[in-house]
């Protein structure tokens, strides 16, 4: 990568000055977020089996448990894979504020692609319904995914600055709680 060639952003020790992310880094985070969002839109087929034990107790509770507990647990770490790639594989170092922006972008990419799949899924009910759903989710859930991924990005920034991976856990859990609460509210209404 260009940043590595120039000696900026590459910092295995954590003590050289951090560079600003380049355009490619923003695109990588947005793209990986979108890719994960595309997969997650079909997510229930992949991670719903994790909630199968709930079926023993209540069928009605099953979809709520998937939305409120399982989806945040799976999606929150997954949507920040791009940031993890930049940090762990490319060994890039940025300021914490830059990690939050990269996180926000990966979340927005995730939300956008998930919404595209959902809008195409209701195309059978008419183009109006499909566009309305895309508009509504684009304004409501895309920023939600951005908010939660911003928190995860903040955690990755703390991890990079401190060298302590446990500092990622608190923002990540906060992101999961926010995502789960949103899904719970949507399930209740």
């Amino acid at each position: 990568m260009e940043g590595m060639k120039a000696g900026h952003g590459l910092d295995p020790t954590g003590f050289s000055p951090a560079a600003r992310p380049r355009r490619a880094h923003y695109v990588i985070c947005l793209g990986i977020g979108a890719t994960v969002g595309f997969v997650a839109a079909f997510g229930e087929s992949f991670y719903a089996p994790l909630a199968f034990p709930v079926l023993i107790f209540s069928q009605a509770l099953f979809s709520i448990v998937v939305a409120v507990a399982v989806a945040p647990l799976v999606e929150e770490p997954a949507k920040s894979l791009g940031l993890l790639l930049l940090k762990e594989e490319e060994k890039l170092t940025f300021e914490i504020a830059d990690w939050t922006i990269l996180g926000a972008l990966s979340g927005i990419g995730f939300g956008f692609m998930e919404n595209v799949v959902y809008a195409l899924g209701v195309l059978g009910y008419g183009v109006n319904v499909s566009l309305s759903l895309f508009l509504m989710r684009g304004l409501l859930t895309a920023p939600l995914h951005g908010i939660t991924a911003t928190l995860t990005g903040f955690g990755i920034g703390l991890w990079q600055k401190s060298g302590n991976a446990r500092l990622l856990l608190i923002p990540l859990i906060a992101a999961m709680v926010i995502h789960g609460s949103f899904n719970l509210l949507a399930s209740i209404i």
Binding site: P143, I147, L151
Partner: peptide, 13 residues
């Protein structure tokens, strides 16, 4: 570090 992106995203939301 999180306040600016969060404020923009919350207004959007």
């Amino acid at each position: 570090a999180v306040t600016l992106p969060l404020s923009i995203l919350l207004f959007w939301q």
